[in-house]
Amino acid sequence: MHYSIGDYLQDIVQNALEAGSAYTNVEVQETDRFLTVQVKDTGKGMSSEEISQALDPYGTNGSKHPKRKVGLGLPFLLQCIEAVGGEFQIQSEPGKGTSVCFRIPLAHIDAPPLGNLVETFRQILTYPGTHEIRIHRTRGKDSYTLLRSELKEALGDLESAGSQALLKEYLESQENALEKEGIPQIEGEKLWQK
């Protein structure tokens, strides 16, 4: 299993980008009870057989690594969701894209830590390519939105260490402006019901 929720999130986004997603929407909503994450992409999508294969740790289409017999990205997440009594949804349509959504009850003793979201967002936003990524982060009533294209325009490039240092500063200022305590639980419920 991965260590933090940020690790799972990054793994799913990487799947989306490897599936050729031109526009990927990431929602991270934190309430007093739940952490809800949704990654919606416009990649190549999957048939129902391919979804079953992606969820099976011993299933792989062999295209990336011809001799490998395992594919562990989503199975890791499923294992974690099962351990904490969370919820998981995957919807996909070939040619249109995939949506992965999961919810973790934060009070569960085995709930993974959130991890460093600033680092996770920075790493998600700096994957090479011309794709667009939108990240919408909510904590209680507060939220902020990040658009990869806007950040690229402001920073010139996203690959140099200098740009990534500035990006970290920007992301930290967004994250630190979120309310710290007394999070109401309404917002997270909304995303799950979508």
């Binding site: 299993m1 991965h2 990054q10 562990l72």
Partner: peptide, 21 residues
């Protein structure tokens, strides 16, 4: 930075590179 890398701590490695640079 695939599943294997992330599971082994590649995120921390990448951050360490950026911090040291």
């Amino acid at each position: 930075m695939a599943t294997c890398g992330i599971a082994a701590g590649a995120k921390q490695t990448l951050s360490a590179f950026l911090n040291e640079l």
